[in-house]
Design a binder for these strands. Sequence first.
DNA 1: TTAACATGTGTTCAAATGAACACTATATGG
DNA 2: CCATATAGTGTTCATTTGAACACATGTTAA
Lengths: 209, 209
Amino acid sequence: MLTDRQQAVLDFVRAQHERLGLFPTLREIQAHFGFASPFAATRHLQALEKKGALTRQPGKARAFTLPASRHSSASWSGGGLLSIPVFGVIPAGLPAANAQEIEPDESVAVDAASLGLRRNSRVFGLRVRGDSMIGANILEDDIVFLAPREPTPGQIVAALIDGESTLKRFLHQRGRPFLRAENPRYPDLLPAAELIIQGVMVGLLRRTA
Amino acid sequence: MLTDRQQAVLDFVRAQHERLGLFPTLREIQAHFGFASPFAATRHLQALEKKGALTRQPGKARAFTLPASRHSSASWSGGGLLSIPVFGVIPAGLPAANAQEIEPDESVAVDAASLGLRRNSRVFGLRVRGDSMIGANILEDDIVFLAPREPTPGQIVAALIDGESTLKRFLHQRGRPFLRAENPRYPDLLPAAELIIQGVMVGLLRRTA
DNA sequence: TTAACATGTGTTCAAATGAACACTATATGG
DNA sequence: CCATATAGTGTTCATTTGAACACATGTTAA
């Protein structure tokens, strides 16, 4: 069992790695805790290592490993994490080359593989408003993930109509595309102009807590 | 625009950080690419820095920053990433203190905030089998996230019945708990013995790609 | 009361690591 | 043809960083 001081050191090591992507040096730990000697930091790290709370590579700078506590970012080694910008209203500029510069309302992190995507895929998220897609089991406040790609009929897409984005199912009839809400209370949309598809749905995240 | 060699160096730096949680030293980059001199590595890093692909803290070991490319793990600075074990069948041992040692079928990464959870919260995932919860907009192959906590009536839970786990809505009737499928094709479950709740649903991840 | 552990201080030194210089070869653009 | 950029080699040195020793104090458990 870690002592309070040891836990504090471990928390600092973990927090530095989360914030900066770097583990701290002995002297950075010394400075943070106000130790007069870097060896005090060494003593704590040695105790943490003995108790299995971290491992060190002898003689190497900043070389820690935090063992799999399965619920922390330090243990994620599956790679391919996506930081996905989420919009409440999709900016008309999406998907554009400079889309990354449009400030999202929030961001969520999900690993690419669980959405069936390659690492570093371009994805954005849309916070669902309303109940127009309830028939497709998409609820208000869900985050729908969309990738910019050409849709095939039957897929759910974000489309730009009259300067606004809408989430609908993409279908064809007699060679002409149209959009269907998955709620009988909403009519089909047959766009007068060419349909601009901003993204095709690749996944969904729901929070129920 | 980065040259091919510079891109290769950047990819290596990023990959090492994803795999090990550490940026490489000049000599580790030198060894990887077979350079005769650590200064070759320095030259590439200087070029990458000049082109804005990374930044370095002068004179400090392994001290890089990768600027926000919004679609890579290096850019996730929101903290609180959860590495969630996902099971096809929930082991009867969940949720137990040694649950972390039970080997999951897979893991997914999601940030805690988007599930309304604190960093380092204990969560596990269940890959949904069958259509018993379709009425709650939970589809087969969805991953349902569950946190070990006491349920309140109306919540969706994973419960252990007859040695098997099942996902159902938790309800009360005349003070007695029972489980309801959200599909009229399945009957309510009135457990004979005391109900063991393995987790309460806190979110869901769906893949449609 | 004693031993073990925790938590340091103070100091020195070895190794790791980054910095930088002079040089060479090749490619590219003006 | 010349200047610049890229991509190194070879080498040396400064700084950062980790390691480790001797010592001290307080706490805890046997």
